[in-house]
């Protein structure tokens, strides 16, 4: 099966967006999961709700809110442009942000569950052996959370690959910039002879999803053996 150059552009763009969305959101998701699982602070309930908002809101609404906040004249967006020269509208960076925001609750949830499953007794044991809190987190907690982090990352990639509503609302459908596979399929179905293109992109989506699942199963098994949870 051969893809046209336009289709290749959409596939590569999707992979790029999914990759960067995941890379950027993972560390933040780990930090947020830690806050939610291990700490108590005033307004935690509100914070918790805010984190999970993108999961329950219509994606178009998420995209619209992003537009209001991060658009060229948005209350954050104008300073991004003014101070850092960052422009999100109609750009790949914007598509990445949309994908990251939409997948964020899924990632946080997977990591939070993994964190809650880590035996606190092991952390206490590590501290009696002379490790401080940061040391314990890096050498005990983080490695034992690995399966959860990996499944969080897979969810992030899968959700980013499939992101449509927030992307098209926030950064529109610009070829080579924001037209990821779902947006390209959407465009193809609007073209008079786009059926073949849509079919090919759908096939690519299926292959990508399947490959991601297989890879994650494989990695998960290796990691579980590494941390002694077989």
């Amino acid at each position: 099966m051969m893809l046209t150059p336009d289709e290749w552009t959409a596939v590569l763009l999707s992979l790029k967006v999914a990759f960067w969305a995941t890379v950027w959101s993972l560390p933040i998701a780990i930090a947020v999961a830690f806050l939610l699982a291990r700490t108590n602070f005033p307004g935690k309930g509100l914070f918790d709700g805010l984190i999970y908002m993108p999961l329950v809101l219509p994606k178009v609404v998420v995209g619209y809110l992003l537009l209001i906040a991060l658009g060229a004249r948005g209350f954050i967006g104008q300073y991004l442009a003014e101070w850092f020269g960052i422009k999100l509208i109609f750009t790949t960076a914007g598509a990445t942000v949309a994908a990251a925001v939409v997948s964020f609750p899924l990632t946080v949830n997977a990591i939070r569950l993994a964190l809650e499953a880590v035996d606190r007794g092991l952390e206490t044991a590590a501290r009696t052996l002379g490790a401080n809190r940061v040391d314990v987190f890096c050498t005990i907690t983080l490695p034992l959370m690995m399966p959860g982090i990996l499944s969080g990352a897979l969810l992030a990639i899968a959700s980013a690959l499939g992101e449509f509503g927030a992307t098209i609302t926030f950064v529109s459908n610009v070829e080579g910039q924001t037209r990821t596979i779902p947006l390209a399929i959407y465009s193809a179905t609007h073209m008079p002879d786009g059926d073949a293109m849509a079919a090919r992109l759908v096939a690519v989506s299926v292959v990508l999803a399947f490959a991601a699942l297989l890879l994650s199963n494989l990695v998960d098994r290796r990691v579980r053996i590494l941390i002694g949870r077989t």
């Binding site: 007794g121 092991l122 044991a125 009696t128 002379g130 401080n132 034992l144 002694g228």
Partner: peptide
């Protein structure tokens, strides 16, 4: 003193060896 500064050797009932 924080736990890690006390230098106690603690042997737990459930051993608590690091599985990884």
């Amino acid at each position: 003193l924080p736990i890690e500064a006390r230098r106690v050797g603690y042997v737990f009932q459930d051993s608590r060896l690091f599985p990884h």
